[in-house]
């Protein structure tokens, strides 16, 4: 199981690659609103797929909403609650 810090830092990396944000991910805190930072619903789809891939999880229907992707913390909460604390194939 990855530590919370490692999970959020993996999410930051995915955001950098797939989020297509209008600002640098490094300039965001874990609670900043990602939609305000330029995340669009279309980019949410790419972000979702990348996160599923990275953590080897699948977001069920009830997680497929804006709130799940509202902030880095919100995404980390979702990842953890879906048992995706460790990266697929990563050595923990």
């Amino acid at each position: 199981m990855q530590s919370r810090d490692a999970t959020t830092s993996s999410i930051r990396q995915v955001l950098q690659d797939a989020g297509n944000l209008a600002v640098e991910v490094d300039s965001l805190t874990d609670i900043d609103d990602l939609y305000d930072a330029g995340l669009t619903s279309l980019n949410t789809v790419n972000l979702m797929l990348a996160i599923e891939d990275l953590f080897g999880i699948e977001f069920p229907d009830e997680f497929l909403n804006r709130d799940t992707f509202q902030s880095i913390n919100a995404i980390a909460d979702a990842v953890v609650s879906l048992g995706g604390g460790s990266q697929k194939g990563a050595v923990a």
């Binding site: 209008a22 600002v23 609103d33 305000d36 930072a37 330029g38 995340l39």
Partner: peptide, 10 residues
């Protein structure tokens, strides 16, 4: 936009 520095979605 919320202010002149804000992103297009804010």
């Amino acid at each position: 936009r919320a202010n002149p520095q804000a992103t297009a979605n804010d």
